[in-house]
Design a protein around this nucleic acid. Structure first.
Length: 424
RNA sequence: GGAGAGAUGGCCGAGCUGGCUGAAGGCGCUCGCCUGCUAAGCGAGUGUGUGGUUAAAGCUGCACCGAGGGUUCGAAUCCCUCUCUCUCCGCCA
């Protein structure tokens, strides 16, 4: 979110940025209500000033036991006028906020300008794409043959797009969660967090999922609570409405949570397998940093996520999202995409973003510098490190053997009682 | 679920028979003095947001004492609603 003042002063920049995003925001309305706000406020503050002065007078008169009825009578009118103005100011403020909270973040200057995902840029390829002397199977077939997951039964329990793992399948999920958390806490210096899986409206507004994207969320009936679409929401909101000292930065958290997404508008896409589910597990990385460090911190966040794929020896590529594909709150985003042999393509497995001060401002997270009076907004970042279900899919597909078995990546074996492969 | 207590500045904590309280006191922090270092001591300063003015420091208006509404000329203080925290009882993984 932008402060009104900033928006007023940088209108043309923001306009251009929004155009680059293919977003549609009516800034003319903003200007209109902004100037209205100013005129109401000026009048209101003058009246309040007068009221405060006269109130003191009345107090003084009363103290001297003198009559003040005539002034009080006068002030009654002023009080009425004040109330009126306050009402219209509130209304005006509501409209302004609605506009303000619907304006997306400005892309960083290093973000390529583009219309959609086709203009994203590949910036790195890593790992070896496996070669097969047979036709590699899709992970849902492998999983079914190995009897480690069962989507039909999951649909019976709940509905389409819910996971149900058995035996080694369930264990691999758990092993991956532990492996990732262990790596990030011991090697990368993150503090492990286990947050609530249900959050209130305000938290979702802070991180930017609301007010625009309510249809993507699962809402709890009868309460203004939602299932989290990502750990980013509860974890970023840990410091909502707080002042963080400069010397405490960077703050780095990692959290495992399930994620719940309604996937509205994605019907017919990725209907099979683990790629697009209503519920999936994820290990998330979240950072609070000083503005001057945030782009370096984005690079290291990306590295931290990449490490997991390197250790699992899975081939991947890194892309930088273009302006048209950038998420609402992000100023810059790298996606890591893992190779899926059955689809002969790379699929997103992590998304690492710098939100700059966008979320901090919405969530009133502030930064106190060591020798400065004025408070600033810290920058927030987050990234998946990684999505667990998609990692399982990638392991199954990349490590599959001709006989239908799947080799377990070495780093995971100690988490799985030492087994080296899953056999049919 | 029932009964009660509470929510004040970076933290702790007064005020709550309405006006002199943006808020005592303490801690912390900053600056200065002092002691050869450290600790202690002394003095001054120190909330947030937003507007005006200024080259700047500063001065200054308004708002904010959990959130929202109400009463009043005037509310941290009174009333209502909501949220959260704590204590006791009940129930429970």
């Amino acid at each position: 979110m932008f402060e009104i003042k900033y928006l007023r002063q940088n209108l043309s920049n923001i306009k251009k940025a929004i155009e680059n995003r293919n977003a549609d925001i009516n800034l003319e309305t903003f200007i209109q209500y902004d100037s209205k706000r100013k005129s109401i406020l000026t009048e209101l503050e003058e009246l309040r000033y007068r009221r405060n002065l006269v109130s003191d007078e009345i107090a003084a008169l009363k103290k001297q036991k003198e009559n003040s009825d005539h002034i009080i009578k006068q002030m009654k009118e002023v009080a009425g006028k004040i109330k009126e103005l306050e009402k219209s100011l509130n209304k005006n403020e509501e409209i302004l906020n609605k506009i303000l909270f619907n304006i997306p973040n400005i892309p960083h200057e290093s973000v390529p300008i583009g219309k959609n995902s086709e203009q994203n840029k590949v910036i790195k390829k890593a790992g070896n794409i496996p070669e097969f002397d047979f036709t590699p199977k899709a992970h849902w077939t492998i999983g079914k043959d190995l009897k480690i997951f069962d989507f039909e039964r999951a649909a019976k329990i709940t509905g389409a797009r819910f996971p149900l793992y058995f035996g080694t399948g369930a264990k691999i999920e758990r092993a991956l969660i532990n492996f990732m958390l262990d790596t990030h806490t011991t090697k990368h210096g993150y503090t492990e967090v286990l947050p609530p899986f249900i959050v209130n409206r305000n938290s979702l507004i802070s991180t930017g999922q609301l007010p625009k994207f309510e249809e993507d969320l699962f809402k709890i009936e009868g309460l203004d609570y939602f299932l989290i679409p990502t750990a980013e929401v509860p974890v970023t909101n840990i410091h909502q409405n707080e002042i963080i000292s400069e010397e405490d930065l960077p703050v780095k958290y990692t959290a495992y949570t399930p994620c719940f997404r309604s996937e509205a508008g994605s019907y017919g896409k990725d209907t099979k397998g683990l790629i697009r589910q209503h519920q999936f597990n994820k290990v998330e990385l979240v950072k609070f940093v000083t503005p001057e460090d945030s782009y370096n911190e984005l690079e290291s966040l990306l590295c931290d996520a990449e490490t997991i794929l390197q250790e699992l020896k899975l081939p991947y590529q890194v892309i930088v999202l273009c302006t048209g594909d950038l998420g609402f709150s992000a100023a810059k985003t790298y996606d890591i995409e893992v190779w899926l042999p059955s689809q002969k393509t790379y699929r997103e497995i992590s998304s690492c973003s710098n939100f700059e001060s966008f979320q901090a401002k919405r969530g009133k997270i502030r930064l106190r510098r060591k020798n400065k009076k004025k408070l600033e907004a810290p920058h927030t970042l987050n990234g998946s490190g990684l999505a667990i279900g998609r990692t399982v899919a990638a392991i199954l597909e990349n490590y599959q053997q001709k006989d239908g078995s799947v080799i377990i990546p070495e780093v995971l074996r100690s988490y799985l009682g030492g087994i080296k492969e899953i056999k049919p």
